[in-house]
Design a protein around this nucleic acid. Structure first.
Lengths: 184, 184
DNA sequence: GTTACCATGTAACTAGTTACATGATTGA
DNA sequence: TCAATCATGTAACTAGTTACATGGTAAC
């Protein structure tokens, strides 16, 4: 059994919803998956091409009135099977997130305390902004009754994002406090 | 001013400690930075080469008794300046972590509940194991008095890892609970 | 003699982004 | 006519991993 990268599985998964074109896929990702999965057209279109070559999906050209032509992709039985097999595999490993702020902090002794403090404060603001966007996504999922069956799972992923962001904000607060109290 | 990728800055930062060779750098990363920054020899050696070419460090060959020859790298004034400039730059953006488990969960409606549950349980176990390794790293930093000046900052990064892991474990617990209660 | 550790390096490959190129339709 | 949105695609580049290749030293 041929294996694919996770981006391919992400696209197969999205094709189970009513997103049918490369453009639709990008829209869905930017709106709903963006907090844990980003993707560019430079990857979507070539991936869709190999998905069709491997007969995981079929493609038809649809000309809709008053809109440009677009290609619509539909999963084949084989495509659904491939997705199911991937879903049933256990997770290989916890993602190793590369974190620029931790990298800078690790070498914190080589910068002024003021600089470390302002870097952390800036980071904290960005995290707080992110937290608000999560609240917004949450509200739009809850409000949109179209995807009721999927909503539960979508909210789980959002809950993860919120919890992680909250913990990161708390870490910022705590670290800033320690830095400011130290050396008094 | 030429800019470099973060891996280059990581290596410049490590060269401020008494890690002097490619091998040493790999050791330090595997022992102390591994929870937020991994790196392979396939990147270390070529990066060291360009660091020397750009005169951010000098290299000397040292033959130590009873050990193979090794190359020792020392930061130049320019190298220290380059590192300092990077440290003083604000963070561009919060890292967008790609998360395989969230991706699978997002498509959770297309798998059995049992499967989702066991995937989450497996993930939780991995997180708990990771939490323990953080405790171990923490103890080894606290025990090792050699790096007292750096220790504070190293512990900050570890605290981040611990908080994030703890929040992720709590999310697993909560999500599992919701899944098991749902549909009763 | 063989395992573990010390030590350096490259080639091939995979993944992914960015910038570019093209063009239709709609509404202000 | 100009901006926004819909729509598809490629080429060049950057980053990074894995597998391979090599060889010294020490201890058992």
């Amino acid at each position: 059994m041929k294996t694919y990268n996770d981006t391919t599985y992400a696209i197969l998964g999205i094709l189970t919803t009513d997103c049918r074109s490369g453009y639709d896929i990008k829209q869905l990702i930017d709106r709903s998956l963006t907090h844990f999965w980003k993707i560019s057209y430079g990857q979507i279109y070539p991936t869709l091409k190999t998905i069709v070559e491997d007969e995981l999906a079929t493609v038809t050209i649809s000309s809709q009135p008053s809109k440009p032509e677009r290609k619509e992709y539909h999963l084949t039985a084989q495509g659904k099977e491939t997705l199911k097999n991937w879903l049933e595999e256990p997770i290989k490993q916890i993602p190793a997130e590369r974190n620029e702020i931790l990298l800078k902090l690790f070498f914190g002794r080589h910068q002024s305390k003021e600089n470390t403090v302002s870097t952390l404060e800036d980071y904290k603001k960005k995290l707080e902004a992110r937290y608000l966007t999560y609240i917004n996504i949450e509200e739009s999922i809850t409000a949109n009754k179209e995807h009721a069956e999927d909503a539960l799972y979508w909210l789980f992923t959002l809950d993860y994002g919120k919890r992680m962001t909250k913990a990161a904000i708390e870490w910022c607060t705590n670290t800033l406090e320690q830095l400011l109290n130290e050396g008094d």
